[in-house]
Design a protein around this nucleic acid. Structure first.
Length: 227
DNA sequence: CCAGACGTTGTT
DNA sequence: GTCTGG
DNA sequence: CCAGACGTTGTT
DNA sequence: GTCTGG
């Protein structure tokens, strides 16, 4: 899961402030983002260089084409150290995917009910991410791409879905972004044991079509209990 | 050694 | 690039 | 993740 | 059913 995130009212400036400097990719011209689209990402680099593209769906540097990205938009935290696509990025190419919230679909009898999930404080979410760079030999472009780490759902999220994105609290930002921080097991443990406070409410199925964008996606759904 | 995979969700 | 399976 | 397509010949 | 696009 974690197949769509909301950028809501995030701006490059308020993210820079929230994360304290670091490098923030430009906010794409889209309110809600789905796999294969551009994502804003915070990360630290050894030296500055040009960003070409930053796609959601990690394409490893050794990939022959970008087809694999279809299956790498999420990375299970339980197996990060074993999967060839994620092993090296987990060691030294960690990033933070910024979002105001994310969408999750709850399977009901005959349908899937989307929910919007966010911090009660409405502060931005820092989703644990990994990135890599891939040279597209067809176009000559350097394609930078990323994935969102998932973990077992906790708290109220567990009523909606089995999995959820791994969420970083501010005290973990520095270590997560530092490619020289080598205690990856500690990072794994901290993420897996984190039980972030999250709020959620049902939204219209309008959000389920990736063509639909804008704040209509996160408008609360009218329910019987409101009558 | 070489060839081939390299992934998640969810569903059965 | 690196690991697994044959 | 979900939604939507799923095809050819030939023409511009 | 399975693949592609967002």
């Amino acid at each position: 899961m974690c197949g769509r995130v909301s950028l809501g009212d995030l701006t490059t400036d308020n993210l820079r402030e929230y994360f304290v400097l670091d490098q923030v990719a430009p906010i794409p011209n889209s309110f809600n983002v789905a796999p294969s689209q551009l994502l804003p990402v915070v990360r630290q680099l050894g030296r500055s260089r040009v960003l070409h593209l930053l796609l959601w769906g990690l394409v490893p540097h050794w990939a022959k084409d970008r087809e694999i990205a279809r299956h790498t938009f999420n990375a299970r935290i339980e197996t990060l150290t074993r999967k060839p696509s994620f092993r090296a990025p987990f060691k030294a190419q960690r990033c933070i995917v910024t979002a105001s919230g994310f969408y999750e679909w709850q399977k009901q009898e005959e349908q899937k009910q989307p929910f919007y999930v966010h911090r009660p404080s409405r502060q931005p979410l820092a989703l644990a991410g990994l990135w890599d760079a891939w040279l597209d030999k067809e176009s000559g472009n350097l394609i930078e791409s990323c994935t969102i780490v998932t973990t077992k759902a906790t708290g109220a999220m567990a009523d909606i879905h089995q999995r959820m994105p791994a969420i970083l609290d501010p005290e973990l930002f520095a270590a997560w972004l530092d490619p020289r921080f080598g205690d990856t097991h500690r990072l794994q443990d901290l993420l897996e044991s984190n039980t972030p406070e999250l709020e959620m409410f049902p939204v219209s199925g309008y959000v389920s079509n990736a063509h639909n964008d804008g704040d209509r996606c996160l408008r609360p759904l009218e329910t019987a209990s409101h009558r």
